[in-house]
Write a protein that binds this DNA or RNA. Structure first.
Length: 312
DNA sequence: AAACTGCGCAACCGCTCGCTG
DNA sequence: TCAGCGAGCGGTTGCGCAGTT
């Protein structure tokens, strides 16, 4: 049995909204609010519209302070950076752009910005042909399929999502019995263009803006979607699972993940033979790939024997 | 001037998630 | 614990307009 429809489709109007319908909806919500029930709303005001349609019309067009019109360069930058870091999570991206709706941003990305960026990337490829064929091919794959959020290295980017109001106390669900006290983020830190000074310079592109050129890959050529890989936050990172389950092959080097131990933002405790950093998605910095840095430090000497095959 | 094409955007569709009883 | 429901979200569709042939 399929899902029950949210409204009687035979008796609701579809298609573009008339000015009269807009006025009806707007004046009602202005006076009474949505009442927290979109399904019931059209009946209350005598609109022959589906509740979902009313909600969409209000959110995308009628509500106050909606910004229509062309996007600025700064907005372009924010959208592209966020897209490359978190993918098509339009509502999150929209939350960073006051006055813009997720629908607007989605449309803008799909119809214009993506093409604009891809054009820029192709130009970049032509200029960097001295790179190896394999590297170029891998890069091309990623750039031509921007549906794959490639990397999650811009730590500061996420700071705009971090708590700023009060210290958090988080209990480790991994049964370690730890209580972690997290200091609030300095609110003055949330700005664009974001500060990249805390990111390993090897992980940044020539403009120190992102890490497009250093995307880690699986051996089969797929771009590593680090965020996807570790979507089941909170999770625990330690040197053991770091070395065995979170390895990626990166351009001939061995890479991986580690949490960024960054002052008060992340806490760590020493185990018997390794260091454990427990991270909560809302409270801590995202993990960052530190492939180059760790290779240089000699932390990764060889593949462990139980390395899952997909990382080999 | 008419037909065609491509693009932008509003709106719809269907899925997931979280809340509630 | 689980089913039902509504809200929210991201993908997709299709209309209308502008530019081109």
């Amino acid at each position: 049995m399929g899902r029950a429809p949210c409204c009687d489709k035979a008796n609701v109007k579809r298609g573009p909204w008339s000015p009269e319908e807009d006025a009806k909806l707007k004046s009602y919500i202005d006076e009474y609010g949505t009442g927290g029930n979109w399904i019931a709303l059209p009946h209350k005001i005598g609109l022959r519209r589906c509740g979902k349609s009313c909600r969409l019309r209000w959110l995308n067009y009628l509500r106050p302070n909606i910004k229509h019109g062309s996007f600025s360069e700064e907005e372009d930058h924010i959208i592209s950076t966020l897209y490359l870091n978190i993918g098509s999570r339009w509502s999150i991206i929209a939350s960073q752009l006051p006055g813009r709706t997720d629908n607007d941003i989605k449309n803008y990305w799909n119809t214009r910005l993506k093409k604009k960026l891809m054009g820029m990337q192709r130009k970049d490829q032509q200029l960097s042909k001295r790179g190896g064929i394999v590297k170029q091919e891998m890069k091309r794959e990623v750039l031509e399929d921007l549906k794959v959020p490639a990397l999650y290295t811009s730590m500061n980017l996420y700071q705009s999502f971090w708590p700023t109001e009060s210290p958090l106390i988080v209990t480790n669900p991994n049964d370690h019995g730890q209580e972690l006290h997290v200091k609030p983020q300095d609110p003055t830190f949330n700005h664009y263009p974001f500060d990249t000074t805390s990111i390993q310079p090897e992980l940044l592109d020539q403009n120190n803006k992102n890490q497009l050129a250093n995307t880690p890959y699986f051996a089969n050529g797929d771009a590593v979607n680090l965020f996807q890989e570790f979507n089941n936050y909170p999770f625990e990172i330690n040197e053991f699972n770091y070395n065995t389950t979170q390895l990626e092959q990166f351009d001939g080097l061995v890479g991986g993940l580690a949490s960024l131990v960054n002052g008060n933002n992340c806490t760590s405790s020493s185990g018997e033979s390794n260091t454990t950093n427990w991270c909560d998605p809302l409270a801590f910095p995202r993990p960052t790939p530190i492939a180059y840095e760790d290779c240089r430090r000699g932390l990764l000497q060889s593949y462990p024997s139980d390395l899952p095959s997909r990382f080999q």
